[in-house]
């Protein structure tokens, strides 16, 4: 990894931690954006706990999306499940094309306000990249490798676990990473249905015409997305190295 990029990332991480730990020390920076004596730093809740709550929601939703999308991907690439490919693809695509806001609107009457409707919206929104990457990953395992695995006497299950999934892993992880990053940003809408998160800060800014709040909510979310993306990439590299060697 180039040095400059590493320095930049560490800088971003330091900035995020510093801001979440001591937001008030950044007040002078945001003061010009807060008009008519409004507070320059969000003061209706703890930024750190909002950020952590949002991260938690996103990770939980991503875990669920991963489980379902990888499961579906495995199912439709088995001979017995191939018939479900069109159906699965349609469902997953709807999850992505149906706007998350609309999902919230539909979900609230069913499960009430709070974190649950947000989880549902993020779960549906995050399925597509993981599902498609799982499919590509599994379908691009070379035919000769699959034939050798069966020819050696691996059962279908052994072949899946020891050969197909490890070889598809780089693409699956990339799908999870995409899904996570998209959803860190998308998660801010959860605040419209009273889920804890940084959307609260942005909404408060919109309601009181306080650009400083909007910027804070947006910046923290953006930094989290970037760092998550890089963190996942680093994790993938480590994981792949250990898969190759174990």
């Amino acid at each position: 990894m180039p040095r400059a990029a590493t320095v930049l990332r560490l800088g971003a991480l330091a900035l995020l931690i510093a801001f979440l730990a001591k937001p008030q020390s950044f007040a002078p920076l945001f003061a010009p954006l807060a008009q008519y004596g409004a507070p320059p730093i969000y003061d209706q809740g703890n930024l750190l706990s909002l950020a952590l709550a949002q991260l938690g929601t996103v990770c939980l939703a991503a875990a669920a999306s991963t489980l379902v999308a990888v499961g579906l991907g495995v199912l439709v690439t088995r001979p017995s499940g191939a018939q479900f490919l069109p159906l699965s693809r349609t469902l997953v695509n709807i999850g992505q094309t149906f706007p998350p806001v609309a999902v919230l609107a539909v979900a609230v009457p069913l499960v009430g306000f709070g974190e649950k409707p947000t989880l549902i919206a993020l779960f549906a929104y995050g399925l597509l990249p993981i599902f498609e990457n799982t499919l590509v990953g599994l379908k691009t395992v070379p035919g000769a490798v699959l034939e050798a695995a069966s020819g050696m006497g691996m059962s279908a299950r052994q072949r899946l676990l020891a050969v197909e999934l490890p070889l598809a892993m780089p693409l699956i992880l990339e799908g999870v990473r995409l899904s996570l990053v998209i959803n860190v940003g998308t998660a801010t809408i959860g605040s419209t249905v009273a889920a804890k998160g940084l959307g609260e800060v942005i909404i408060a800014g919109l309601l009181s015409s306080n650009t400083a709040f909007i910027l804070q909510g947006g910046l923290v979310t953006g930094l989290m997305a970037i760092l998550l993306y890089d963190g996942m990439a680093a994790l993938e590299r480590r994981l792949l190295r250990s898969v190759a060697l174990d």
Binding site: P142, L146, E147, A148, S150, G153
Partner: peptide, 22 residues
């Protein structure tokens, strides 16, 4: 079938080695 195949060696064109294994 999979137990039978463990007793029978199988070699194919393009070898089909597992690329992620040593």
């Amino acid at each position: 079938a999979h137990l039978l195949r463990r007793r029978i060696g199988y070699v194919i064109q393009g070898h089909g080695l597992f690329p992620h294994r040593t």
